[in-house]
Simulated assay, not measured.
Amino acid sequence: MDIIDSIILGIIQGLTEFLPVSSSGHLELGKAILGDQSVPKESLLFTVALHFATALSTIVVFRKDILEIIKGALKFQWDDNLQFILKIAVSMVPAIIVGLFFEKQLEQLFTSNILLVGCMLIITSLLLFLADKAKNTNRSVSFKNAFVIGISQAIAMLPGISRSGATISTSVLLGNDKTKAARFSFLMVVPLIFGKIGKDILSGDISTENQSFTALSIGFAAAFIAGLFACTWMIALVKKSKLTYFAFYCAIVGLIAIGFSLLN
């Protein structure tokens, strides 16, 4: 993998991890349009590095919140901080179950199934449109909400469903404050990313052979910087109810994908 490829992949990962456009869906579209051999197949090590970069960018953006939550939770008092951590844990349950028991079935869906991607992008578009029209409140995410949002995160494993779009939209439609919904959405995925990284490392499948550490470092930096930008921008967009632009984008790309699949 050359330097240009690593920069492009890093930027795509950093942006699509937070912007509600579905990174997996766009990858499948790219593979179908350009051909599998035309898309650089990054190693597992490179993939792990990019995911670590976006997780790190989330931690940097929410560093004050995370420190406050951890300090509060260490007091072992039943306060908002301890409850927030437990809500994050509850939200992880559906994704962990799907990941452990349906991993092979999910992998079979990532075979340039353009019709599925198109339909899922339309669903993402509808979710974003409805969330943008919802009235803002001061409500925080409850334990019941956390589990429901976790279900939407698990469903977002399907190619074409945006993880951030699905979780933020679900939270807002449940009547939660938009800024708090975005904050919860971005923080709830961090433990899952680190868990997946740990699983990949322990699996022994990661190889450093034929890997350019220059390209790896540059890809990491590109994903980290793009992640900082996208995470901060997305919070502002949700707060100002500007998700409709992404709703239209997903709808247009989804319709094009459906048309492309029907004509081929």
Results as ranks from 00 to 15, higher is better:
Gly99Arg: 08
Lys133Gln: 12
Ala251Leu: 13
Ser142Lys: 10
Met1Lys: 01
Ala221Thr: 13
Val61Cys: 02
Asp79Arg: 15
Lys196Cys: 14
Leu9Pro: 07
Asp79Gln: 15
Ala221Cys: 11
Leu29Phe: 08
Ile197Arg: 08
Lys133Asn: 07
Lys75Trp: 02
Cys119Trp: 14
Lys75Cys: 00
Leu106Trp: 05
Ile193Gln: 12
Ser241Val: 00
Leu174Lys: 09
Ser212Lys: 02
Ile258Gly: 12
Ile168Asp: 04
Ser125Met: 11
Leu45Phe: 10
Phe18Ser: 08
Gly10Cys: 11
Phe129Ile: 01
Val21Gln: 04
Leu15Asp: 06
Ile151Thr: 05
Leu82Val: 12
Leu216Lys: 14
Ile66Pro: 05
Met120Ile: 13
Ala182Arg: 04
Thr167Asp: 00
Ser164Glu: 03
Lys87Met: 05
Ile97Lys: 10
Leu109Val: 06
His26Tyr: 04
Leu50Asn: 12
Gln108Lys: 15
Ala230Lys: 05
Ile218Cys: 13
Gly165Ile: 11
Asn176Met: 08
Thr179Lys: 14
Leu27Cys: 09
Ala236Pro: 09
Ser162Tyr: 01
Asn81Pro: 03
Leu34Val: 03
Ala55Pro: 13
Leu262Glu: 04
Met1Gly: 08
Thr179Ala: 02
Ser207Asp: 07
Asp80Ser: 14
Gly204Arg: 14
Ala257Pro: 02
Gly99Val: 08
Leu128Lys: 01
Ser207Gln: 08
Phe224Leu: 14
Leu216Tyr: 10
Thr16Asp: 01
Leu121Pro: 01
Leu106His: 02
Thr54Trp: 00
Leu187Gln: 04
Ser24Leu: 07
Leu262Gln: 06
Ala257Lys: 08
His51Ile: 08
Ala226Asn: 05
Glu107Thr: 13
Ala222Arg: 04
Ile161Ala: 09
Ala181Ser: 15
Gly160Ile: 09
Val98Gly: 08
Ala182His: 06
Glu28Thr: 12
Phe224Glu: 09
